[in-house]
Deep mutational scan, measured.
Amino acid sequence: DLSALRVEEVQNVINAMQKILECPICLELIKEPVSTKCDHIFCKFCMLKLLNQKKGPSQCPLCKNDITKRSLQESTRFSQLVEELLKIICAFQLDTGLEYANSYNFAKKENNSPEHLKDEVSIIQSMGYRNRAKRLLQSEPENPSLQETSLSVQLSNLGTVRTLRTKQRIQPQRTSVYIELGSDSSEDTVNKATYCSVGDQELLQITPQGTRDEISLDSAKKAACEFSETDVTNTEHHQPSNNDLNTTEKRAAERHPEKYQGSSVSNLHVEPCGTNTHASSLQHENSSLLLTKDRMNVEKAEF
């Protein structure tokens, strides 16, 4: 173990290094160091905050020279020094078990990766560091076993998940096959086929009936047209017969005018059967003409 005197000496050296690497504005270890034209180094955030307070150039807090945003430059070497100082402080805390008085939040800088452990060898070769390295080497064999167990647990979990997924996939297939086998029997399929065939026959029977009705309507229309044509021909046949009657009536009127007047009046009210309204109107006109002729003949006879 380190003596108290040596611990104090190391602590004083760390404090001196820390004062050199402090920012003059925030009085902390410089984060993202930036250098000016006057070779003074500050935190990048502190300098941008200072420049944004005034429009135009501002003055350096140490030498009062003008500073602009374009004049600022990043210093990589200074950032490396800060990183190495942080590593020294971490090693000091691990070796002594004491917390550094002016320690900052170094938890963000710590890294437990194997590459980081290899890099620590180049920091300080001390008894405390050696003991700590031995402890780490002793704890390393235990870690692979834990990793193997965790991997086995994960693989077993994956296997159970896969088996569950396969079961879920197989179950719908089985149910679907069961439904297909038990849903419709052979008799049901035959009945469905016969039902479809009967429906098709009914459709075939319905369509000819409609065509037959249309044919019957067409035949009825044709018969009505033929009947009207026969009526017209009958009226045409009746007209010459009426003319013959008129000639006979004229002759009778010349011989017996008194008797014919009474008979002509009675004939006005008689309509021949089986004739249309057109034929009756023609008869009325003929009878009126005959009456006028008879009157003329009677007057001539009187004179």
Rank of each mutant, 00 (worst) to 15 (best):
S263H: 10
S288L: 09
F42T: 01
G262S: 14
P208R: 05
R135H: 08
S183R: 14
C46L: 00
G56W: 03
N276R: 03
R77A: 13
T68M: 13
Q205V: 06
K109G: 13
A107S: 02
D213F: 10
T189Y: 06
D66I: 02
V82A: 02
L86H: 06
F45H: 14
S145C: 12
V121S: 06
R130D: 08
V232S: 12
S185H: 03
V153P: 14
E202A: 13
S35H: 04
I89E: 01
G262E: 13
T207L: 07
R251L: 08
N234F: 05
H278S: 09
G159F: 04
L146N: 09
G199Q: 08
C90M: 11
L282V: 01
T163L: 06
S150G: 14
Y195V: 08
F78D: 14
K259T: 07
L146R: 13
K108I: 07
K37E: 05
A223F: 06
Q80A: 05
R162M: 05
G274P: 05
R174F: 09
V7L: 07
S186K: 03
L27W: 04
Q147S: 10
L203K: 10
P57D: 06
C26E: 00
G128D: 12
T233Y: 15
Q53H: 01
S139T: 11
L137R: 13
M17G: 00
N243V: 05
Q168R: 07
N65L: 03
F227C: 09
Y100F: 12
S145Q: 08
K37N: 14
C196W: 05
C90Y: 14
F227Q: 05
Q93S: 04
L50P: 01
D218K: 09
Q209D: 09
Q147C: 05
E140P: 08
S219T: 10
L155G: 04
S264V: 09
C225I: 06
Q11R: 14
E148L: 06
S145P: 08
K118L: 12
T207D: 15
T163F: 05
P257W: 11
S139D: 10
N52P: 01
L137C: 08
D66C: 04
I30K: 09
Q125Y: 07
L164M: 09
K118H: 12
D188L: 02
L146V: 13
Q168G: 13
I25F: 01
K109R: 12
V161M: 13
F227D: 14
V270G: 02
T194Y: 03
A133K: 10
L27G: 04
E28W: 00
L5T: 09
Q73H: 08
R165E: 13
R255T: 03
P144R: 11
Q154H: 05
L29K: 01
L62V: 02
P57V: 12
C38Y: 00
S219W: 04
E99D: 07
I123H: 15
I20W: 05
I41M: 08
D95N: 00
L204P: 14
E249S: 02
F106W: 02
K64T: 00
V270M: 11
N143Y: 09
Q154V: 05
K69I: 04
V153M: 03
R165S: 01
A279T: 11
R132Y: 07
K259R: 07
K192Q: 03
K250V: 12
T160Y: 06
S145A: 11
T76G: 10
D218F: 07
A4C: 03
L203T: 14
K19H: 01
S126R: 11
G210V: 09
Q138L: 11
I89W: 11
M296L: 11
L48A: 06
S266N: 12
V265E: 09
E214Y: 08
S219R: 14
T36R: 00
K64N: 02
H284T: 01
L27C: 01
T163S: 12
E142P: 12
K55E: 09
H40D: 02
S287C: 06
P33W: 00
N234S: 06
S145W: 13
V265R: 06
G274V: 11
L245F: 11
D294F: 13
A16Q: 15
N102T: 12
S216E: 14
G262Q: 04
L164Q: 15
S58M: 09
E28R: 02
K87G: 10
N143A: 13
V82H: 01
K55I: 06
L94N: 00
R255F: 10
E202T: 06
T149D: 08
E32Q: 03
E9H: 07
R255S: 06
L85S: 04
C26F: 00
D244R: 12
K221F: 05
R174K: 14
Q80H: 10
L29G: 02
G210C: 14
N131D: 13
I67T: 04
R165N: 07
S145V: 14
K69M: 04
Q283L: 05
M17S: 00
Q73G: 12
G128Y: 02
S35W: 05
Q261Y: 07
E8N: 07
S228V: 09
E271I: 07
P141N: 07
H278V: 07
R132P: 11
Q125F: 03
L282G: 02
L5N: 06
D119Y: 02
S58K: 07
S219M: 14
G274A: 08
H278L: 11
G128R: 14
G182I: 07
L21E: 00
T233A: 12
D294Y: 06
S126I: 03
L155D: 01
S156V: 07
Q147H: 04
C43M: 00
L146F: 02
P144E: 11
A16V: 02
E140G: 12
G199M: 07
I67H: 00
H284M: 14
L62C: 09
H278F: 15
P114G: 09
E148K: 13
Q171R: 07
T248A: 01
Q147T: 08
Y260A: 09
C26Q: 00
H269R: 01
N143Q: 07
K64W: 00
R162H: 03
R130I: 11
T166N: 07
K37S: 15
Q18H: 10
D66P: 11
R70Y: 15
A220M: 14
E22I: 01
A133N: 10
N246A: 11
K222F: 07
F227V: 15
N297I: 03
I14V: 03
F42L: 02
S79I: 07
L5H: 13
Q93M: 02
K293G: 11
T68Y: 07
T163V: 02
L81Q: 05
Q73R: 06
R6H: 10
G56E: 11
E142G: 13
E28S: 03
H269L: 14
S139Y: 08
D39E: 02
E148R: 12
S152H: 03
Q201Y: 07
H238I: 14
K250T: 09
E32A: 04
S216R: 07
I89R: 02
K55M: 12
P141S: 13
S152F: 04
N157I: 01
C43R: 00
E84S: 11
L50S: 02
K293Q: 05
T277A: 07
L164E: 10
V232H: 04
S266K: 07
E28M: 03
Q261M: 06
K55T: 12
T163D: 04
S139C: 03
C90Q: 14
L85G: 05
G210D: 09
L27S: 02
D244F: 06
T163I: 04
I25D: 01
L158K: 15
I88V: 06
K49I: 04
P114A: 11
S219N: 04
N131I: 06
H284Y: 07
E22V: 02
E84D: 05
E22G: 00
R77K: 08
S126G: 11
I89L: 03
E258P: 08
L48Q: 12
G262P: 07
T160R: 02
